[in-house]
Design a protein around this nucleic acid. Structure first.
Lengths: 344, 344
DNA sequence: GTTAGCACTCAATATGTTCGAGTGCTAAAT
DNA sequence: ATTTAGCACTCGAACATATTGAGTGCTAAC
């Protein structure tokens, strides 16, 4: 078990290292304000902390840096909740002050704000509003072979894609199909659309449209949902300013990983509601072994729908970043919920 | 004026340096296949080429590297048109083999292919189809305060945005407005929409809708066009593998510039139809002083609508990249044109 | 339990040496 | 009049060798 003094010293070392990025030695530490022990005493305690795995030495005669376990302990037990500065709060307010009309806009803007405030890279998983419901389907024929299908949800989200037109369907068929879809599927959650084709729509199609097979296939194509794995980044280049990433190979691995939307989605998918902190190897990915990820889910109407997070070096300003993310994820939830419920 | 032999030597040096990234010396050059001069002779010629500004020495006793003027001369006069390999052509074919239905998809895919084939970064300015015409306007009310406006063009492009609903407009007004807009504006090119509001729509609105002011403002908001400055990138991380960018500061400047969509748009905007090659400082941007950009416009129905290009080190495989870009921009133009005219 | 003192370690830095691929110049060969 | 061989010279890269200084561990005194 750690003594109070050891905890205090551990905290001082982490705090120092987070800001200096240099190994912390006993001499310089003892000179710090608020520390009244001699270098020798500190050396003893530091040696103990190292034995217990909280500190590491880059080489035998250097100062100490926190180990991953050290960061973990710092984050779990020592972290003082960081009160955001007036300016930071002001900055975030300004984000939601602009009257933004669209969720994607709000989310993108959040990513930018977060990376600007932290000088790390921000990652935001776009809002996956599962329970958003179909408001209307539009089928707009472009010519004989193609039409545009447009799905609008009650949250104002619009999806569109081009679909090919089976030759056997004429424009009156299209109208019928569109009417049936709108009639039967309004208010159905998007994720249930494909299912409901069979139960709700198929029968009616058979009844009213001649080439039933084509019509059914067409309806399915129309309602197909685009993959919702959108990942937004803010300030990726910020990482290039961090001393731990001055090595091009490291940064290349990281950037390559960030480009894999799918992997990032897996990595950040809200496995639990609330704040998540992954330090170094906890990320279970070689490219991120020197990175920490702090993320939080944001909600819509009380249900988590997306994730907002920060990627930075393990030597991260945890207190500040945690404060910012907690605040921003809450604000974002409120903003999104307001965006749609103020209207309805 | 350069002698034939000097041209030949210049070409050999550029070719060598492009592949080795190492300064080319007289001894190693003379050993190359196809070169029958002694090192001493080459030295004399190289000294002359240096005096004339086509070559440079990194330091006094090193081999030569091409100067920007050297590259320029190489590109303008020496370049052998590179015949694409079977595999390259096959790769590009596969791009257009997949039956893609949407322009944006095709364009993004082109960017990926291009960066994969070259190991440089590709940049594509999205298709700005000026003469694309309005097919249909949809106004879908979400609730009392907001509606979604959807514009569909004859090319299948869909734009949507949320607009706020003036209180004085009821749903029957909305329907009237939508009808008027569709009636009067179908077939009008997008870029003329705002103008036509006054000439075509304003009178009818006054006639049929009570709160004329609101209706007019609403119509304007509905028809507002989103800024079309889309820039797509492919393989940005490829640049991190180039030896000239092993310095993090350089790469940071480049990446920061690439993130400024607007600047990149300015830089690549099709000032002239056809192929553009900018070498080093010709890019008039400090961040790109060690980069070359090769780009070409692609067309829709014979009118240039976008740009596809490559950013790489000045030491670029010009012949190959030029071949690829010329080919791809043509294929892209054909694909886009087919995409829409096969249908109509 | 705390601290001063001391010998030791090791990265970073500076300094020196060698090596080799390169150059320019001159004189001989073609 | 070119071309080439020969030679002295240059300079970065690579390696070895001090020097420095902030740091450590250990022991003994406080």
């Amino acid at each position: 078990m750690l003594t109070d003094r050891q905890l205090f010293i551990l905290q001082a070392i982490v705090d120092d290292y987070i800001h200096s990025a240099e190994p912390v030695g006993s001499r310089s530490l003892s000179k710090q304000d608020g520390i009244s022990y001699s270098p020798a005493t500190l050396r003893n305690e530091m040696a103990d902390l190292e034995d217990m795995g909280y500190l590491e030495k880059p080489h035998s005669s250097s100062g100490r840096i926190p180990s991953e376990q050290g960061y973990r302990h710092y984050v779990d037990h020592l972290l003082l909740p960081h009160t955001l500065s007036r300016k930071e709060i002001q900055n975030m307010r300004s984000l939601f002050a602009k009257k933004m009309m669209e969720a994607e806009q709000v989310v993108k803007q959040s990513a930018t704000i977060l990376s600007d405030l932290t000088s790390y890279a921000s990652i935001v998983l776009g809002p996956e509003v599962f329970e958003s419901k179909l408001k209307q389907v539009q089928i707009i024929p472009l010519n004989e072979n193609a039409a545009v299908a447009i799905l609008v949800t009650d949250t104002g989200h619009v999806e569109n894609h081009t679909v090919s037109l089976p030759e056997l369907l004429n424009s009156s068929d299209l109208e019928k199909i569109a009417n049936i879809l709108n009639d039967r599927l309004e208010g159905v959650p998007l994720y249930q659309l494909q299912k409901k084709i069979m139960t709700e729509v198929s029968g009616l199609l058979k009844q009213h449209v001649n080439s039933y097979q084509d019509a059914l296939a067409f309806a399915e194509e129309t309602l197909q949902k685009s993959k919702q794995e959108k990942v937004f980044y803010g300030g990726k280049t910020n990482l290039l300013s961090q001393p731990e990433f001055k090595d091009v190979d490291k940064i290349r691995m990281i950037f390559e990983l960030l480009e894999e939307d799918h992997t990032m989605h897996e990595l950040l998918k809200p496995d639990q509601n609330g704040l998540m902190i992954r330090i170094g190897q906890e990320n279970a990915n070689e490219a991120f072994e020197d990175c920490s990820i702090i993320s939080a889910t944001y909600s819509f109407n009380g249900n988590p729908v997306g994730t907002i997070g920060i990627v930075g070096p393990t030597r991260m300003e945890y207190p500040r970043v945690i404060g910012l993310i907690e605040h921003l994820s809450k604000d974002l939830s409120i903003a999104l919920t307001n965006l749609y419920t103020n209207r309805g």
